[in-house]
Write a protein that binds this DNA or RNA. Structure first.
Length: 600
DNA sequence: GCCGTTTTCGGCCCGACTGTTTTCAGTCG
């Protein structure tokens, strides 16, 4: 049972308890526990096995026992007992915006409404008005929310949300009196998908800011409008919340609205224990005297912590790490010197020529680009002869351009269903860089898929495993495979794992990055560009890595010569010396680079 | 149900906005 499944059932437990009007703190306890499990980097089953569940914040004897039951049996007794009392359609009513537990229990118990369809009928017929505190306006709002619920296509990918956020922030910055404007929330934490946008403005004069905000051309409807808080829904379906605060409280508000919720609660609780009150309006002592809050770092400073980067504010150990002085020095985009996975127009789906790629790479300051076109199993992929010719072409363009950026002769070779590689070993050892990826038979059972990947990692000719899980966010789930075993083998055989920076992949995911980091396996951040304008996507991979607590030293392409072996293990060195010998025998056409050992 | 620098009981984050009321409950973040 995966962590997300355990978390889902614990969340559901909170909903069930709430609908049955149980103690609200018990409700909160289950939700908090669900949150903790959901952001846990290690499999919860391991903690059950080791009996260390109760070491997690918010998980005591009671919930730990239920999680153990859950991991063993797929469910637990109390959950089943409560679930039997609440029809499944009733639980689903909670997903309608503006409909909370009180409304659900009153229409369920009072009017016998048991699902969304029945709720819709009651709104249209006016019968819903019999429920307490229910009027015409609310009935209409619920009908609209039901329509949205049915049309909803899920959360928006980060790159799209970020683009919209940048537009809105730029527009609000032009408003006179808007002294500071920042996007916060999940966009600032660089979560891979975004449910809504949060924009914060520091201003003494909120009127013009609010008017500009609700009047933007992208706005489809105004959800709410007030002097400090307004919400709109954009035509693209995204909701945007605006908060306006006094400039002297901007830092506290920025922290508060960046979240995550779990992080905020943990920090507030910590502050309370020290007799300090934290809110979006600042940091205060017991007597209500302001201690600070103009800058975000004030908030951390006053509770005795260093500033914590937004990407790791998930309530998953960052506060404890900060306290112990063990916060990671997260990797930054400028640390990444080059790109190790780039497609050219030599294979099927690439759109840009080598020169176009090199030009764009130079503009972005990349020192090297590995040209890694597809192997023969892909439509229009390269066979051994075509790849050799292509490699000569890459070397020739590189010579012509003087190695700025250095173009590396590489390939993205398919891992075939039996775990063999799609090209013969001898051609692979002639290259500078080999990415190996799964592109077919995604539905193989877990053990077969894991064996398949492991066999490729053990081939001795692979530098990095490309997009390790194969997921496409919101469109295709990861294939079934044992990530921990792949990490262990990769570590042992000196093969790196890719953090594929395509915004719809982000694969390894942030959580998988953290697992890989804990295992000490080498990582590579690559854009997997299929056109020159994709090269800039590398930053999305950097953000995923940051969310996974990755430091520059964990990532091979922060080094000047990542393709030239390295000291991490003898296997890699052996293969690369083999390659150098092959080059020496082969004469011209070899890469002239690689004269130095890696500096660390 | 969880937790403890006010520790085994008695707290648990908290403010804004809306729509319903006629002073506030419900929802949201």
């Amino acid at each position: 049972m995966e962590n997300t499944d355990v978390a889902r059932i614990l969340f559901e437990m909170g909903d069930l308890l709430e609908l049955l009007d149980e103690n609200q703190f018990k409700v909160r306890a289950y939700r908090q526990a669900a949150q903790v499990i959901d952001t846990l980097p290690t499999p919860v089953s391991e903690l059950v096995r080791d009996g260390t569940l109760t070491a997690l914040p918010g998980i005591g004897e009671g919930i730990a026992g239920r999680i153990a039951e859950l991991v063993e049996h797929g469910t637990f007794e109390e959950h089943d007992r409560l679930a039997a009392r609440v029809p499944p359609g009733v639980l689903e009513l909670l997903e309608i915006e503006g409909v909370g537990p009180k409304t659900v229990s009153s229409v369920w118990m009072g009017l016998g409404i048991r699902d969304i369809d029945a709720l819709e009928v009651a709104c249209r017929s006016g019968r819903i008005l019999e429920a307490p505190r229910m009027g015409e306006l609310r009935a209409r709002a619920i009908l609209q929310a039901i329509a949205r619920h049915r049309a909803r296509k899920g959360r928006m990918l980060l790159h799209r949300a970020l683009w919209i956020a940048d537009e809105i922030v730029a527009r609000l910055r032009e408003v006179h009196g808007a002294l500071r404007v920042e996007a916060c929330g999940s966009v600032r934490r660089r979560l891979e998908t975004v449910g809504d946008l949060d924009v914060l403005v520091g201003s003494k004069d909120p009127g013009p800011v609010t008017r500009t905000f609700v009047g933007m051309p992208e706005v489809a409807s105004v959800v709410s409008e007030g002097p400090t808080k307004s919400s709109v829904r954009l035509k693209v379906g995204l909701q945007v919340d605006l908060r306006i605060v006094a400039p002297e409280t901007f830092g506290a508000a920025l922290h508060y609205f960046t979240g995550s919720k779990a992080h905020n609660i943990a920090l507030r609780t910590r502050a309370l224990r020290r007799g300090i009150k934290l809110s979006e309006y600042g940091v205060f002592d017991r007597e209500g005297r302001r201690l600070g809050g103009a800058e975000e770092k004030d908030v951390f400073e006053i509770v005795g912590l260093p500033w914590i980067p937004p990407e790791i504010r998930e309530g998953s150990g960052e506060i404890e790490a900060a306290e112990a002085g063990k916060l990671p020095r997260l990797i930054e985009e400028k640390d990444v010197l080059g790109d190790m996975h780039v497609h050219s127009d030599a294979s099927s789906d690439g759109q840009s020529s080598l020169d176009e790629l090199a030009d764009e790479g130079k503009k972005l300051g990349r020192r090297y680009l590995a040209i890694t076109d597809h192997s023969r199993s892909r439509p229009l992929g390269l066979d051994a002869d075509a790849l050799r010719a292509h490699a000569r072409q890459v070397a020739s363009v590189d010579r012509k351009r003087g190695g700025r950026p250095k173009l590396l002769r590489g390939v993205e070779v398919d891992i075939l269903p039996d775990g063999s590689l799609d090209l013969p070993r001898d051609v692979l050892t002639e290259l500078d860089w080999v990415v190996a990826s799964v592109h077919s038979h995604f539905t193989d059972p877990e053990e077969r898929m894991t064996d398949r990947i492991v066999r490729a990692l053990e081939s001795g000719v692979v530098d990095v495993l490309g997009h390790p899980s194969g997921r496409l966010i919101g469109r295709r789930d990861p294939y079934a495979f044992d990530l921990q075993r792949v990490i262990d083998v990769a570590k042992k055989r000196g093969v790196a794992l890719e953090i594929n920076a395509q915004p719809e992949r982000l694969d390894l995911s942030d959580k998988a990055c953290r697992l890989a980091r804990d295992a000490g396996v080498a990582l590579v951040i690559s854009s997997d560009s299929h056109a020159a304008n994709h090269l800039a996507n590398l930053r999305f991979g950097v953000w995923a890595a940051r969310r996974g607590w990755i430091e520059a030293g964990d990532v091979l392409n922060t080094r000047p010569w990542p393709w030239d072996g390295g000291e991490r293990n003898s296997e890699r060195r052996r293969i690369h010396s083999e390659k150098r010998e092959a080059r020496a025998r082969g004469g011209p056409g070899g890469t002239e680079g690689s004269p130095r050992r890696n500096e660390r």
